[in-house]
Amino acid sequence: MATKAVCVLKGDGPVQGIINFEQKESNGPVKVWGSIKGLTEGLHGFHVHEFGDNTAGCTSAGPHFNPLSRKHGGPKDEERHVGDLGNVTADKDGVADVSIEDSVISLSGDHCIIGRTLVVHEKADDLGKGGNEESTKTGNAGSRLACGVIGIAQ
């Protein structure tokens, strides 16, 4: 089992970053940390998408990683996509320092995120509470600013 993974985020604009993942036990939580720069100040949706395909930019990554066919939600919700990591918060300089621990994603097994795409979005994720159909699919997080395929790390 891989215990570490990394993702280099890039987009068409100024947004870029490096996100690290570490899972010490196969059924334990995954620590997610790193930094994203070039964002507007505020909240930005942060999700693992189904495919590791960036051939047409971030759009070819498909929908959120959702092997259990659930509705979109927040990272602490029972009803959520596996890939729903909530929001990252950018400061006035456009930098989001990421520090998350998640017990639904994994670096092995059915919820493995390796080979899938991590995406940072234009807007805040409403965590499935926006009151419309799009909220239950995407959290109304808007366009995909930057993305990268999650790969095994040393």
Rank of each mutant, 00 (worst) to 15 (best):
S108K: 11
I18C: 10
S135W: 04
S103E: 09
H72L: 10
G131W: 08
G83M: 07
V82A: 12
K4H: 07
A61I: 14
H44N: 09
H111I: 05
G73V: 11
C147A: 09
G28D: 07
A153W: 07
P63D: 09
E79V: 10
L107F: 04
D110M: 01
E79H: 14
V6M: 00
V119Q: 03
K76P: 11
C112Y: 02
D126C: 11
S135D: 06
S26N: 07
S60A: 13
T59Y: 09
G131K: 14
K76Y: 13
H47W: 00
E41Q: 15
V98K: 00
V120T: 02
N132V: 10
A61Y: 15
V119R: 02
G13N: 10
I100R: 06
P63S: 15
A153D: 14
K10D: 08
K37P: 03
T89K: 06
L43A: 10
G83H: 10
G131V: 12
V95H: 07
E101N: 15
D125Q: 07
G42K: 02
G94Y: 02
I152N: 08
V48M: 02
E134K: 06
D12A: 13
S106D: 06
G62P: 01
D126Q: 07
C112E: 03
K24H: 13
V6D: 09
F65Y: 12
T3C: 14
R144T: 11
G130Y: 06
G17M: 01
C7D: 05
K24F: 02
H72I: 00
V15S: 06
D110E: 15
S103I: 05
S35K: 12
K37Q: 05
S108L: 10
I36A: 01
N20S: 10
R70W: 10
G42L: 02
N27S: 13
A56I: 14
C112Q: 06
G11M: 00
T89S: 14
V8W: 14
P14K: 10
G94I: 00
F51W: 02
C7G: 03
A96G: 04
V88M: 07
A153M: 05
V104K: 14
T138D: 09
G17W: 03
G57V: 10
Q23T: 04
A56L: 08
R80Y: 04
I113G: 02
R144P: 15
T136V: 12
A56N: 10
D110N: 05
A5I: 02
G13R: 08
H81M: 00
G74S: 13
K37W: 13
I150R: 01
G34H: 01
T40E: 09
G11A: 08
V6Q: 15
G45C: 08
P29L: 05
H49N: 07
I19M: 07
E134Q: 11
H64K: 15
D93G: 11
L39V: 04
G74T: 00
T136C: 11
S35T: 15
E133I: 06
E41V: 13
D126H: 12
N54C: 15
A90F: 03
H47E: 04
F51A: 08
R80N: 04
D102R: 01
G151F: 15
N87R: 04
G142V: 07
G142R: 07
K10P: 01
R116T: 00
G94M: 04
N66P: 06
N132S: 10
P63L: 10
L118M: 10
L39G: 01
K123P: 01
T59L: 13
S26Y: 15
K71R: 11
C112S: 13
I114L: 07
P29M: 07
D12S: 13
G86M: 04
A153H: 14
G139V: 07
I36M: 05
T117P: 04
D102W: 00
D91L: 06
A153G: 13
N140G: 10
A146Y: 02
G62D: 09
S143A: 12
L9I: 11
V15G: 05
S135G: 07
T138F: 07
S69Q: 15
G28E: 13
P14L: 09
S106L: 05
L107M: 04
H111S: 11
D12Q: 11
G86A: 04
L43P: 13
N87Q: 04
G139R: 08
I152A: 05
G34R: 03
G151P: 00
C112L: 01
V15Q: 06
D126G: 10
D12H: 09
V8G: 04
S106A: 09
E134D: 08
V95A: 07
E79M: 12
L85K: 00
V95D: 11
L85Q: 00
D93E: 09
G151W: 10
K4C: 11
F21Q: 00
D84L: 05
L9Q: 01
N66G: 09
K4N: 15
S143L: 15
G11P: 04
K71Q: 08
G142S: 04
K129L: 12
G139H: 04
N54E: 10
G83K: 15
V15M: 01
C147S: 13
I18W: 03
N87A: 06
K123E: 14
S69P: 05
S103C: 14
D12L: 13
A56M: 05
E22D: 09
Q16D: 15
D97L: 10
G13A: 09
N54H: 10
T3M: 14
I19A: 06
K76E: 12
T3N: 06
A141H: 08
D12E: 13
L85T: 02
K92V: 10
Q16I: 07
G17K: 01
D97C: 15
G139W: 05
P75W: 14
V15T: 07
G148I: 02
G139F: 01
G109W: 00
G73W: 02
D93S: 13
K31Y: 06
P14R: 11
G13V: 08
V32I: 15
R116E: 01
V8Y: 13
D77I: 05
R116S: 05
E133A: 13
E122R: 10
V120N: 00
K92F: 06
G17Y: 02
P75Q: 15
T138Q: 04
H111N: 14
K10S: 14
H72Y: 05
V88D: 00
A2I: 09
N140T: 11
S108Q: 06
S143R: 13
S26W: 11
N87E: 04
H81N: 13
Q16P: 05
D93F: 13
G130L: 08
I113L: 05
K31A: 07
D77N: 12
I100C: 10
V95R: 09
N140L: 10
G42Q: 01
H49V: 02
G148R: 01
N87L: 07
L118I: 04
T117K: 10
H121N: 12
E78W: 12
G148N: 02
D12G: 10
